[in-house]
Simulated scan of single mutants.
Amino acid sequence: MSDAATPKVRKTPARRRKPAAKKTTESAAPAAAPPTQPAEENAAPVALIRVPLSVRWRDLDAFNHVNNSKYLSYLEEARLRWMLGVPGQGLDDHVAPVVAAAHLNYRRPIEWPAEVDVELFVERLGNTSVSIGHRIVDAKDDTVLYCDGNVVMVWIDRGTGRAAELPVAVREACS
């Protein structure tokens, strides 16, 4: 076998351990108290909508529970129903919302047949975006949590593709 056929293996240097900190007999200074939160951050989140949905047979995967990608579809349906209640639906010829990030915590599988409720609420309201928290719960028992997390929606200028100021109607619907 020639050298050209031998794969080159790049060795990475071993990491060195940092020396342990020396023990002292002096007591450490007490930790500083965490900064206090502004009153608005401690307030209950603004409820946007609670949407009842039926789990469909086609939502199931080979393991006979709702496929993880369908959770995003449920959230999308709830957001669209909420947006229908916002005057102008938060879009016009100049601005439109896009999903910038989605975070889902899958808490337990949803099995068929099932009725679920998708709850949306405002987590954070910014200048160009809103973080919409969500929970997918059992329709008959909202202590049964299937999923939670958030989706960040950013309003963009349709011409430039850059972030744009939140429309007044969206800001009012979120307050």
Rank of each mutant, 00 (worst) to 15 (best):
R107H: 12
P109C: 02
H65I: 08
V144N: 02
V116Y: 05
L145Q: 05
I132G: 00
D93P: 03
P35Q: 14
P87R: 06
P109T: 09
L75E: 05
V130Y: 00
D59W: 08
Q37E: 13
D141M: 09
R124V: 15
I136Y: 02
E41M: 14
L48E: 07
V151N: 10
L145G: 08
L80N: 05
A101M: 14
M153T: 10
V99G: 04
L145C: 09
L91Q: 14
M153K: 01
G133S: 05
V116Q: 03
E41W: 10
M83W: 13
G85F: 10
G88I: 13
L125N: 01
T143S: 14
V137P: 01
D141W: 11
T128W: 08
H103A: 14
A44H: 08
V152N: 06
S73Y: 11
A47W: 08
G88L: 08
A100I: 06
D93C: 08
I49M: 13
S69E: 08
V122C: 04
L91H: 13
A114M: 07
M83Q: 11
T128Q: 11
V66Y: 02
D138G: 04
L60V: 07
D148V: 12
H134T: 04
E119H: 12
T143N: 07
E77G: 06
V152Y: 11
R58C: 15
W155T: 01
E115I: 06
Y74S: 00
D142K: 11
L84Y: 15
V66F: 06
D138Q: 01
E123M: 15
P35M: 09
K70Y: 13
E40Q: 06
D59E: 02
Y71R: 05
